[in-house]
């Protein structure tokens, strides 16, 4: 019999194979402290403006539309055997959030974006069951990855933007872009720039896509299947399945991370 705890959380911490909860707690705490430390040290910590909250809200709305109305049905196009390799639902959310962090470029936007999305998803579909566990999961397993990258790049996740400490060599990167010349961006980002494919403005988004894509592919299976699923509803922990889905989702996250970062770089140029 499955026991029911508070708000639909089974509270099962002794499932065979589950990651011990102190490890998860310590990782989340250390990652947050580390984020705060780097952000503080290189001065990329800055206050959110009202328009930033608007951008995050808009991004969350797109994530909702994607996750509930587009993604699940795109997944039907994927041959079922390949479903663990490509999950359009989560990939689309990843790309949309990349665009949001490209526009806002402040430490905390990744976590805020996931938080807003999570509350919104509860309003639209999940009905606040299992909260606040899902909120914690999304903010600390996924959101923090993006924030660490923003902090590491001093508020220029895709090489564009005015970070707190402008360096002479960086300032001309964003300035060169034809700001909002047409307003139309091709999805592949192939029309950006006139130089070689990996010219300087493009190499940073590509690196950003790789650096954020890898932990995204790893964090989902490890934290959800390995810890939160048994905690929430007594899911079965199967480490073979976790490791398989980690490897399986890695290529798609890398590809979509790079594409998403290139789009994000373009969008943030257009929006200034």
């Amino acid at each position: 019999m499955i026991k029911m705890g508070f708000n639909g959380i089974a509270g099962n911490l002794s499932e065979p194979g589950i990651i011990p909860w102190p490890i998860v707690a310590i990782y989340f705490a250390l990652a947050s402290l580390f984020l705060f430390y780097i952000a503080r040290k290189n001065g990329s910590l800055s206050r959110f403006k009202t328009v930033d909250y608007v951008y995050v809200g808009i991004g969350a709305a797109f994530m909702i539309v994607w996750n509930f109305f587009v993604g699940p049905f795109l997944d039907k196009f994927v041959p079922s055997g390949a479903a663990s390799f490509i999950g359009f639902g989560s990939l689309g959310q990843f790309v949309i959030l990349l665009i949001v962090i490209g526009v806002v470029r402040k430490v905390g936007v990744g976590m805020l974006g996931w938080a807003i999305y999570d509350i919104l998803a509860d309003i639209y579909s999940y009905g606040f069951g299992g909260e606040p566990i899902y909120l914690i999961y999304k903010m600390f397993a996924f959101g923090i990855i993006m924030d660490l990258w923003i902090a590491a790049t001093r508020g220029k996740p895709f090489g564009i933007g005015s970070g707190k400490i402008p360096k002479a060599s960086d300032t001309n990167v964003g300035a060169k872009a034809p700001a909002g010349s047409s307003g139309f961006v091709s999805a592949s980002g192939a029309s950006a720039g006139t130089g070689s494919f990996l010219s300087k403005p493009k190499i940073i988004p590509v690196i950003a896509g790789i650096v954020m894509g890898i932990p995204y592919a790893i964090a989902g299976p490890i934290f959800f299947t390995g810890f939160f699923a048994p905690l929430l509803y007594g899911g079965i922990v199967d480490w073979q399945a976790i490791i398989f889905s980690m490897y399986a989702s890695l290529p798609s996250f890398l590809i979509f991370g790079i594409i998403g970062s290139l789009i994000a770089a373009r969008v943030s140029k257009v929006l200034g």
């Binding site: 909250y53 995050v56 969350a60 709305a61 797109f62 805020l112 309003i123």
Partner: peptide, 18 residues
């Protein structure tokens, strides 16, 4: 409040997106 504001923007935006 800022988070509530953000959610409100999001809820208004969902219908615009569609």
């Amino acid at each position: 409040d800022p988070i509530l504001f953000s959610i409100m923007v999001a809820m208004r935006t969902v219908s615009f997106v569609l």
